[in-house]
């Protein structure tokens, strides 16, 4: 087990290096920070609301992640497959799941760094008023969990194709479906002909439903379990996809 953990740390380091080796990571950070600002202050009416909280900041995160998270995940496996290094790493004495988890954790840490760098937002709201910092911390945790869910989908999609662009589009579409599935317009499409349990299930798998309650400061075991199981399921799928695609 200690061998697996050692390998995991080495892989995470290598992948994080992969992000910061190119200007991509920095461009990404800047875009993320700019967009969070724009969404919060212009679209979220941060000032007009007159509330000392970060709800207008967090509520746009699912939409931001929809574009940005697939971009973080797209290169993880697609590039390995395209350059042929996947053959190299799969023949090193490290189990496949360690690679899958390592790559995912590296991307998740990178998303976490992005999120932490939005701290001026927290400073601003504390300067302007007296927010409930507990709610804000919960919001950050929720946002990070949400990014993890999106990322796991993205990792799996990245393994499906050698092309990063295809990986990006596939994960965007899937994440979009998983986000929207809690919306009435989607549920209306199913109601009338689909059994109730299916409609409930569709509403239940939505990222949005679970994220909204966390971002309001209510952190329930159920929501956490949802995100964690989402991550686990997609990473298992990721492992299976890589195994299946080896022959190509």
């Amino acid at each position: 087990m200690s061998f697996a953990i050692n390998s995991l740390i080495i892989i995470i380091r290598r992948e994080l290096y992969g992000y910061f080796a190119t200007p991509l990571a920095y461009i990404f950070l800047v875009i993320f920070l700019m967009l969070t600002g724009i969404f919060t202050f212009y679209l979220g009416n941060f000032y007009e609301r007159g509330q000392a909280d970060l709800l207008s900041f967090f509520s746009y995160h699912p939409w931001l992640y929809l574009i940005l998270v697939p971009a973080i995940a797209m290169r993880l496996w697609a590039e390995e497959r395209k350059s042929g290094t996947v053959e190299l790493i799969m023949t090193l004495p490290v189990p496949l799941w360690v690679w899958v988890v390592g790559k995912f954790l590296a991307a998740w840490l990178f998303a976490g760094i992005n999120l932490l760098l939005t701290f001026p937002m927290w400073l601003t709201v504390n300067y302007l008023g007296e927010p409930d910092n507990g709610v804000i911390v919960t919001g950050y945790v929720g946002s990070w969990l949400l990014a993890g869910g999106f990322l796991a989908v993205g990792c799996c999609m990245s393994a499906l194709s050698k092309s990063q662009v295809i990986a990006f589009i596939l994960s965007l579409v899937l994440c979009f479906l998983f986000t929207l599935s809690g919306f009435p317009m989607v549920l209306d499409f199913f109601s009338g002909w689909a059994p109730q349990w299916l409609i409930d299930a569709i509403a239940e798998v939505s990222f949005l439903t679970h994220f909204q309650s966390i971002s309001k400061g209510v952190i329930s075991l159920q929501d956490c379990l949802y995100f964690i199981s989402m991550i686990v399921v997609w990473l298992v799928a990721n492992t299976i996809v890589i195994d299946m695609k080896k022959a190509e």
Partner: peptide, 24 residues
């Protein structure tokens, strides 16, 4: 492997260190 794949963004020094670390 065929075509000698390696990580393009790494230098040989970094790449060989990485492989050595993974090998324990």
């Amino acid at each position: 492997p065929e075509g000698a794949p390696g990580y393009g963004d790494m230098t040989p020094a970094q790449f060989l260190r990485f492989i050595a670390e993974i090998r324990g």
